[in-house]
Computed example of a mutant assay.
Amino acid sequence: MAAESSVNGATLHHQLYGPQEGPPVLLVHGHPFDHTLWEPQARALSGAGYRVIVPDLRGYGRSALPAGAERTCLSDFADDLVALLDRLRVSDAVVGGVSMGGQIAMDLAVRHPDRVRALVLSDTSPVAESEDGKTFRNRLADRLLAEGMAGFAQEVIDRMIAPYNVTDQPEVAAHVLRMMRGTDPRAAAAALRGRAERPDYREGLAALEVPVLVAVGADDGYTPVADARALHELLRRASLSVIEHAGHLPGLEQPDAFNVALLSFLDSVAPTAR
Rank of each mutant, 00 (worst) to 15 (best):
Asp168Phe: 08
Arg181His: 13
Glu70Gly: 07
Pro255Tyr: 09
Phe33Glu: 14
Ala215Arg: 03
Asp56Asn: 13
Pro55Lys: 15
Arg117Met: 04
Tyr164Gln: 09
Arg89Leu: 07
Thr135Arg: 06
Asp267Gln: 12
Ala246Cys: 06
Arg195Thr: 12
Ala257Leu: 09
Met1Asp: 07
Pro170Tyr: 03
Val98Asn: 06
Glu253Trp: 07
Phe136Trp: 13
Gly18Tyr: 06
Tyr60Arg: 06
Val127Thr: 09
Leu12Pro: 05
Glu197Tyr: 08
Gln254Ser: 02
Leu234Phe: 05
Gly18Gln: 04
Ala257Asn: 11
Arg117Leu: 07
Gln169Asp: 11
Tyr222Cys: 08
Thr135Glu: 14
Glu209Arg: 15
Ala141Cys: 08
Ala153His: 01
Asn8Met: 08
Asp86His: 05
Val116Leu: 06
Leu45Phe: 12
Pro211Thr: 05
Ala189Val: 13
Val28Asn: 07
Gly61Pro: 03
Ala246Glu: 03
Thr183Trp: 12
Ile161Asn: 01
Arg236Met: 07
Arg195Pro: 04
Asp80Pro: 01
Ser122Val: 12
Ala273Ser: 09
Ala215Phe: 02
Asp79Phe: 13
Gly133Thr: 01
Gly148Thr: 14
Val28Tyr: 10
Gly102Lys: 05
Pro19Gly: 13
Leu26His: 12
Gly22Ala: 05
Gln169Ala: 13
Ala109Phe: 10
Tyr60Trp: 11
Gly97Val: 06
Ala238Asn: 01
Val166Leu: 00
Val95Gln: 02
Ala196Lys: 00
Ala206Met: 05
Ala118His: 11
Glu253Tyr: 07
Gly247Val: 07
Val269Leu: 11
Arg87Ile: 11
Ala48Trp: 10
Leu192His: 06
Asp34Gln: 15
Pro185Lys: 05
Ala228Trp: 00
Asp267Met: 07
Gly59Trp: 14
Tyr222Gln: 12
Pro271Met: 03
Phe136Leu: 12
Glu171Gln: 13
Ile157Lys: 03
Glu233Pro: 06
Gly97Thr: 02
Gln254Trp: 09
Arg117Tyr: 05
Ala83Cys: 10
Pro185Asn: 11
Val28Phe: 08
Val7Arg: 04
Ile161Thr: 04
Leu26Tyr: 11
Val242Ala: 06
